[in-house]
Amino acid sequence: SDCSAVLEKTREFFQICDIEGKGFITRRDMQRLNGELPLSAEELENVFDTLDTDGNGYLTLEEFSSGFSEFMFGPGVV
């Protein structure tokens, strides 16, 4: 279904950011994408802050996927 395709993409993208497979993404992991994605360090910082909804400095798969589904389907559909 569409839903599982989105879940699969979410995991894929999460793993791109979580290079070491820690199970979470840190600010530093995000900055490592600087060379791979056409985003500035500041933009990546912004992305991290936006996704880190509880502000604890760690992005979990759950936080990441709610950000992704917001991007896919708009706010409020999680």
């Binding site: 993208f13 791109i16 994605l37 985003l39 912004n46 991007f71």
Partner: peptide, 29 residues
Amino acid sequence: DPNMKGAAANEGVLANFFNSLLSKKTGAP
């Protein structure tokens, strides 16, 4: 509402980020 403005700006950044990831996976080899 300044919060709405901030949310919209962040949405743009997120869209940019996820679009980049999407094109990274599906883009040119």
